[in-house]
Nucleic acid binder design. Structure first.
Lengths: 245, 245
DNA sequence: TTTATATTCTTATCATACAAGATACACGCC
DNA sequence: GGCGTGTATCTTGTATGATAAGAATATAAA
């Protein structure tokens, strides 16, 4: 039982940059500084904090990535947000095990069922066209056995649903989730391709959802979306079970 | 019609650090490098890319924040993830207008309805205790008129529901959302405090949800959660309407 | 073989210098 | 006085070289 990482974890090295980053972050998030305000110059900060300008620049650089600060050559460093928003990330929840995958799909479930409901309420004709186009591509891909195209079409369909919600947060969240979902869908499609029907089931499920959204039937849309995701979960369980056992 | 930003937009300054960051990012995400692999040393990269070590360090620093790289003094720079995961962020969607707030609550809707469903399936006795404790705190806060305590108890309740899902992604996502939700809840509680009943409605809605989760009644949990959020949306609309008009 | 030491990698930090963008102010012109 | 222009002087961005300190490896000693 090797545990190298356990020993690595002991290295509680807090670098100067780490400290200065925390210092600056609390300066920004504490509310002492207004949004849009100019920070002291890097040289001044370095002198005040008793470190070199290198360390200050390192810290500022990190907070720029975090979206708290912004710098302009010749002007200085500005506060763009006082909210310690590090974002929502699923790092570490990669599709290593079926458990991880299912947790991800469960999160998808919640959000996609309601996306379908909002889509049913607000969809435009253009939204419907996008969904049907994706559906056609999906059918063609399954017919021709093009797995990658199938994945793309599948994602395009769900993206179209999210677009139809008229709430960009749904779309943005889907775009984020999709980077993780992509590989699970790929697993599904690959396995589906080995079946006699070539994996036609998702197409039918999508069609039910499209019809509900077209009819602006909110409840039917929720039901169809939930059913589709539940089928996906079931398929994934089967496929992963086959693979790992 | 002033358009200073139009002129600002001309400044298409792409700094060297930006370029090298993109270069390194694509090196990492393209799959040429394995996770755990060691990158060439900063000096080597600097020489190969034709820039100073300063620029390379800046780029590496950014990718460390993004979670793609990790560095250890004396060892080198490692690849910790090949996924370009910048996280899901709602920066820019602050609660400035009622429209922004509603979009946020809509996203919350999707995810919290299903959280209630999973909670109903998987809640432990301890989970129920946490919910009921939060509920008690909520009641006390409303009775005593302590607005801040009311907000905290409200959030604690929903956090307890997410914990009961036994899916840490739900909890993590709630924790992220909550930083934005907090202020909208605060608005609600502040307004509620001016009503004759002191804003008792959410308490009753929470109780319905608790009962459903206790009974492990999945459908009732969904209904209760949806009703609660819809009431919240309605209340927010009223309050913001009053405020802004 | 094991242990201690030296060497040589690496990143982290510092100091300095210069380039380039941006601002403010004084100068000279109308 | 009013106005454009150059310039001094801020700022951040980049380069360079040196040093500190951690980590791996080769080397020598026990």
């Amino acid at each position: 039982m090797k545990e190298p990482s356990a020993f690595r974890a002991v290295r509680k090295t807090v670098s100067l940059s780490d400290q200065v980053t925390d210092e600056l972050r609390s300066m920004v998030t504490s509310g002492d500084l207004e949004v849009g305000e100019l920070l002291p110059s890097e040289s001044t900060l370095a002198k005040n904090l008793g470190v070199s300008r290198t360390v200050v620049r390192e810290a500022v650089s990190r907070l720029k990535v975090d979206g708290l600060l912004s710098s302009q050559q010749g002007r200085g460093v500005f506060v763009v947000s006082t909210r310690p928003d590090r974002g929502f990330s699923m790092r570490g929840h990669d599709a290593q095990s079926i458990e991880h995958v299912l947790r991800m799909v469960e999160l998808r479930m919640g959000f996609e069922v309601e996306a379908a409901a909002f889509a049913a309420q607000r969809r435009t004709r253009h939204d419907l066209t996008m969904m049907r186009d994706a559906q056609s591509s999906f059918q063609e891909a399954v017919a021709s056995g093009d797995i990658q195209a199938g994945v793309d079409a599948d994602m395009a369909f769900h993206r179209a649903v999210c677009t139809a919600t008229d709430n960009e947060l749904y779309l943005e969240f889907f775009n984020y989730l999709s980077s993780y979902l992509k590989e699970t869908i790929l697993v599904s499609r690959r396995k589906a391709a080995t079946r006699v029907d070539g994996g036609q089931a998702p197409i039918a499920e999508h069609q039910t959802l499209i019809d509900a959204i077209a009819d602006q039937d909110v409840d039917a849309a929720r039901t169809a979306a939930r059913y589709h995701i539940e089928c996906n979960m079931h398929r994934l369980k089967t496929y992963y079970g086959v693979m790992k056992t």
